[in-house]
Simulated assay, not measured.
Amino acid sequence: MQHTAAAWLFEIALGLRVFGPDLVRGCRRLLTAGVRIGITQLTGARTPAHSIEPDQEAQ
Rank of each mutant, 00 (worst) to 15 (best):
M1L: 09
M1H: 05
Q2M: 15
Q2P: 01
H3P: 00
T4L: 04
T4G: 07
A5V: 13
A6C: 07
A7G: 10
W8G: 04
W8H: 11
L9A: 11
L9Y: 10
L9H: 08
F10T: 15
F10A: 14
F10E: 15
E11N: 13
E11W: 05
I12M: 12
A13Y: 03
A13W: 04
L14R: 15
L14I: 12
L14Y: 10
L14S: 11
G15L: 07
R17V: 08
R17W: 12
R17D: 02
R17M: 08
R17T: 09
F19S: 10
F19K: 10
G20D: 04
G20V: 02
G20S: 05
D22V: 01
D22T: 05
L23P: 00
V24E: 03
V24T: 08
V24I: 11
V24N: 02
R25S: 07
R25I: 03
R25Y: 05
R25W: 06
G26Q: 10
C27S: 13
C27D: 08
R28D: 03
R29C: 12
R29Q: 15
R29Y: 15
R29D: 15
L30N: 07
L30P: 00
L30E: 04
L31Q: 10
L31M: 11
L31G: 08
A33H: 09
A33T: 07
A33F: 06
G34R: 01
G38N: 10
G38I: 06
I39H: 04
I39W: 04
I39L: 11
T40R: 15
T40Y: 10
T40G: 12
T40V: 13
T40I: 14
Q41H: 14
Q41W: 11
L42P: 00
L42A: 13
L42V: 12
T43K: 09
T43M: 11
G44I: 03
A45G: 09
R46C: 13
R46E: 11
R46W: 14
T47K: 09
T47W: 03
P48D: 12
P48M: 15
P48S: 12
P48L: 15
A49F: 12
A49C: 14
A49E: 15
H50Y: 09
H50P: 00
H50E: 14
H50L: 15
S51N: 12
S51W: 06
I52D: 02
E53G: 03
P54V: 00
P54E: 01
P54S: 04
P54Q: 06
P54Y: 00
D55G: 01
D55E: 11
Q56G: 05
Q56W: 04
Q56Y: 05
Q56V: 14
Q56M: 10
A58V: 08
A58Y: 01
A58I: 09
A58T: 04
Q59G: 06
Q59R: 06
Q59F: 02
